[in-house]
Amino acid sequence: MRAIRVIPCLDVAEGRVVKGVNFVDLRDAGDPVKLAAEYDRQGADELVFLDIGASHENRDTTVAMAAAVAEEVFIPFTIGGGVRTVDDARSLLRAGADKVSVNSAAVARPELIAEIAREFGSQCCVVAIDGRRVSTERPEGGLRDEADTARTGNGLDGQAESRDASDIPSGFEVYTHGGRTPTGIDVVEWARRAVDLGAGEILLTSMDRDGTGDGFDHEMTRAVTDAVSVPVIASGGVGGVGDLAPGVVKGGADAVLAATIFHFGQATIADAKDALSSAGLTVRPA
């Protein structure tokens, strides 16, 4: 039996949840422990905390937050954002996080994935990939038709300045630093390499869809789920619970992540699970 996981994502900075979470009966909307406990109560299958203020100065507060959450919340949770070294990962895992997610630092130095996997096991090493469709307006040309005819490059050795369609055969490019920095790396090739290095799970976010409410980028999700053997979490673009099941049915994802629809009371975890269930998918009842 394959049960699809529903994962709310909370943005945190300096140990506090930011961008507001609007639960009616919650006095402190910034308290990560209370919010996590509420999502646990609602039946969330896992939680992701994304440290968006990630700088080395506030690592301690993030570690303290992980410890506080681990005191009270007994479902798995992942912490991402600003994990640059094995020591960063160790302090978060020792504090009680179940998994850490790496993004920009792993693109800069892919061995980080292998180091974390070797030290703590693949099961706690999530690689977050932020992808965008290659722009068709780029002067050097990134059209998908052209890309499909040029599947020779592995995409990982390409330098940003030499980027052309042959570097991005899938048509989806990895971005870092919160989706601001193009890398010239192919999303699918990067996902494969991350798994070869020891990633236990891929958290795949469409930066084109993120914040739009237009639904997941199913084509990108499918390209990655077809390419790797580990679980893939679809992320970016959920505007309603009806957007969740297509991430699984069309995209092939094993888990679905959303933020806005849950935080502002538009949908409960139970609503999300009902929607998945209605689409014929198995979920753990909320």
């Binding site: 049960a3 699809i4 053997s229 580990v230 888990a255």
Partner: peptide, 11 residues
């Protein structure tokens, strides 16, 4: 025949 690891809730 199934994805490894099993990383999910099960009954």
């Amino acid at each position: 025949t199934v994805k490894r690891p099993q990383m999910q809730w099960n009954r």
